[in-house]
Design a protein around this nucleic acid. Sequence first.
DNA 1: AATGAATGAGAGTTCATTCAT
DNA 2: TATGAATGAACTCTCATTCAT
Lengths: 221, 221, 221, 221
Amino acid sequence: MNAPRTKRGEQTKAKLLAAAEAVFAEQGYQAASIARITERAHVAQGTFYLYFESKLDLFEQLVEDLNRRVRKAMSDGAARGSNRAEAEREGFREFFAFTAEHPALYRVVREAEYVSPGAMRAHYERIVEGYREGLERARAAGEIGDVDPEVAAWALMGVGEMIGMRYVLWPTGDDGAYGTAATPVPDDVFDEMVAFVQRALGTAGSTQTAAATAALTKEDS
Amino acid sequence: MNAPRTKRGEQTKAKLLAAAEAVFAEQGYQAASIARITERAHVAQGTFYLYFESKLDLFEQLVEDLNRRVRKAMSDGAARGSNRAEAEREGFREFFAFTAEHPALYRVVREAEYVSPGAMRAHYERIVEGYREGLERARAAGEIGDVDPEVAAWALMGVGEMIGMRYVLWPTGDDGAYGTAATPVPDDVFDEMVAFVQRALGTAGSTQTAAATAALTKEDS
Amino acid sequence: MNAPRTKRGEQTKAKLLAAAEAVFAEQGYQAASIARITERAHVAQGTFYLYFESKLDLFEQLVEDLNRRVRKAMSDGAARGSNRAEAEREGFREFFAFTAEHPALYRVVREAEYVSPGAMRAHYERIVEGYREGLERARAAGEIGDVDPEVAAWALMGVGEMIGMRYVLWPTGDDGAYGTAATPVPDDVFDEMVAFVQRALGTAGSTQTAAATAALTKEDS
Amino acid sequence: MNAPRTKRGEQTKAKLLAAAEAVFAEQGYQAASIARITERAHVAQGTFYLYFESKLDLFEQLVEDLNRRVRKAMSDGAARGSNRAEAEREGFREFFAFTAEHPALYRVVREAEYVSPGAMRAHYERIVEGYREGLERARAAGEIGDVDPEVAAWALMGVGEMIGMRYVLWPTGDDGAYGTAATPVPDDVFDEMVAFVQRALGTAGSTQTAAATAALTKEDS
DNA sequence: AATGAATGAGAGTTCATTCAT
DNA sequence: TATGAATGAACTCTCATTCAT
């Protein structure tokens, strides 16, 4: 009652997931109706229940899927950096890019507290886990100061989420309507934020000015 | 159709707001029904519409009310500090205490993206405004480093929100059920977080160890 | 969420119960929809849930209500008889009259095995309990033979139910459509059946022919 | 679109009928879904419509099949008896045994009033017809009293059905859950019931006590 | 000011049946 | 013969809101 057994079924499920992501981003989880989602996917309402047990099941599958992808993007970004400072910066860059491209993840997770606390926590915990591992390695390598990796990881998560919300998702000067094209974080804000976290972590070389850091990273972008 | 004109009316409206806060905290905005709220307030369903135009109106009034109170608590806390470092620390302390006592604010705001984007933004912007003003003054006084007050303010907001969610609202080891007594942030986590933001802001004297800071502030608590 | 608190509410609930009885009789429990029932009661669908928690709740309330009334009718009938033979006969007479007037009870109970086993069993057990008590008293008084009251009571229940179904509810020569006026049991069938059970119980005087018995009871009817 | 044309097809249809009987017994006709039945038969949903025109068609085929088999069992049992009294007893014995083994027949027929009145009536009428013929022959032979065979046949049907329901299908002391092993009628109840109907029919020799009858019939069982 | 009955649109979900392969 | 994906109408139930008293 869940996994498609033919190619056609696989396509249909993919269509549903894509439609759900779009509708969730536009209207949020609660306001999104199965009717709206299936309509957008060009399938009948009943078809939905061939691949998902419930609206909640869809939600959890979607969050898990997006979570996997955002972590992949972040770790790919971090891997581009040759030291912790660069890894941090590139990880955030990817995080914001993903947020801009998949606003559904962001928005839906914030709505999820009462919908699926488990899914929400798992989402944050997995990202934080990535931060924590990175920080532990960096600390062992002497690249950052004497910080508690766990607490620092949650703090980084918070910084990223709030900056992402404010500068990526809120269309500047807008009245709050969604669905319009989201803008990525402006360069100066991004640099300020990166400098903020690097000071917080005591990253080696974080004393350089934000402007200098920006000039540096422009080269490899 | 909104402002109570008698003392009795005032009490009724207050009962409704208190009930709404409790029910919102327990079930969230979407799941909370007017029926449940009026039941908890011991008034008839129709009475609700004597004081609120709609569920949304209630929501916005409640968020505004709580927002005013959390800002008051934070600025009172900050005023207790004799320098920026202490102000920061005491502000956060009050923020977490308020979060523990009024989980509804926190939870409902996160759910509000699609309910009332205006109310949600106003909530964050007002708190950030407080941070920003404090940071600007501190910078003018040379108490903190060369940070952009606006970006730093949003970053602080993010740190506070995420740490609050993780350490105040999630009953440790729990499966996600709400309604149980929330625990405030553990001392060591709190100290780590404060040290994190003080390094990030380049607060004068932030080089002291977290333990030392803790010892210091214990005296005046 | 259940008991009406005003006269108007009481009338509405009564209208719903009456409509439900009619619709259940016509279409059965499963096929009867809340929409159909509320339409017939001239109220909105939502009104239904002011007085019943669910379709099942309505069903159980209705069965209990009808059960109470059929037992009242039967015991009133039995009380008219001056000996066990007459009590038996008059009890059955009332049972069939009730069945003719309230086919819903009969039909809905037979459908209830999977809907509400508890309600179905309670229905039968309560009626049987009445039979059993009557039989025990009759046996103590020497009015009937040496029968096991419990087993005999269930047997009587069976006879009544099947004869009722066959001769009261099945419109003779009909193709099975319901909703037409039900006919009560024809006199000769009734007499035969009464004679059958009186022989089975060894009721004193049951050796008289059915015809004679009929002639006898005509007088007091 | 109905009759299997190959051996393989025949097996598939048989699997479907067996699965349907089991599922009907467990959940009843209405709650049983084609999906559940085909799943249990280990065939795809579409396969169902190769052998049955509709769910109703399946129901009617199943009822007819079971009806044929229960009548066969009953008449085989009756044939074992060397007189009417014994025939009656053995017929009931088989009826209860069949009920215990095929609870679906019993339960589904009671649910059938609105599903297929025709099938339900035919089921009862055919069994009653068997009773009636037996009673007519017995009466002609002077083995029973002066009873109307038609009415008596329906009464016997009722006794059997109700005793079967009460003592075969209701697991004693149970809360109404089905699917557990059904117990056959206890000996003493069975004897009481047989004595009941034999008195009702005025079966020759029915004045003997139930115990005596039991002793008698034990010999040939 | 307060009540509680009434509303009705809309939600998620089920399921017998059909269709393309 | 057999599959399983797809359909869409119909269902029960919820709930913010309005109305009559």
